[in-house]
């Protein structure tokens, strides 16, 4: 082996030895500055963690809502076109056409604050001040007959407001409630006497660009 080749081999061996990286601390990335953590720390939880200081009244909220929200959600939160309905629908959850609104369905008020803060107004997200957000949330509560007209929502009284459907949820229980779907004995032949067509998509005709011409069969 030539001298240069020997050196090359030695270098390669060393390089190889120094390569495998333990999964320990890798010194990749850097520590986030407190200001950076705070800039993105916009999430709010049901226990109030994440709520910023501030307050807003139903009255202020109504003004803001009419200016910034009503074009989609309607002046009374009824929803324009297919935009989300925000008010009403109480006791409709068992009905044929449930109306899932902040008042009838949403379990936690913190969700309303968090969502408006991060995503609303639609197309101009994260533009509302903390006080404006409190005010709009207060107006939504008023719209759903949960607080009176003179109510002022703040970080301090936030936790006292309960939404009507707070107890309406439970954790996924499919593995218990739908146990019959596991290890089911399946039938392979003569499983039913007759098969009838119960309904057809075509009857309601809402498919875009449906091919209405029958294909040619050879």
């Amino acid at each position: 082996m030539s001298k240069s080749l020997k050196i090359l081999c030695a270098v390669l061996a060393l390089a190889f030895l120094s390569y495998p990286v333990a999964a320990q601390k890798l010194n990749l990335g850097r520590v986030a500055l407190p200001e950076e953590v705070a800039a993105w720390d916009i999430d709010v939880r049901p226990d109030g963690q994440g709520l910023p200081p501030g307050k807003g009244s139903v009255k202020q909220g109504e003004e803001l809502f009419l200016a910034q929200c009503a074009s989609c959600h309607g002046e009374f939160g009824e929803g324009a076109g297919r935009w989300p309905v925000l008010a009403g629908g109480l006791n409709s959850l068992k009905s044929d056409r449930p109306e899932k609104t902040v008042g009838s369905f949403w379990p936690y008020l913190s969700t309303v604050y968090d969502y408006i803060r991060r995503a609303m107004p639609y197309g101009n997200a994260q533009s509302l001040s903390a006080d404006d957000t409190y005010a709009i949330v207060a107006f939504l509560l008023n719209m759903n007959n949960i607080v009176p007209d003179d109510f002022v929502l703040s970080k301090e009284n936030f936790g006292k407001v309960k939404l009507p459907n707070a107890e309406g949820f439970y954790d996924d229980d499919r593995e218990k409630a739908e146990k019959a779907f596991w290890n089911k004995k399946v039938c392979m032949t003569n499983c039913k006497k007759e098969v009838t067509v119960l309904n057809k998509a075509r009857a309601i005709d809402v498919t875009p660009e449906e091919n209405k011409n029958a294909p040619k069969v050879d």
Partner: peptide
Amino acid sequence: WQHREETSKYTDLLADGKSRR
């Protein structure tokens, strides 16, 4: 966090008016 996409959406409203989350 109980955010919008795991409460008002992506929960499964059952016939009895309760929802699986």
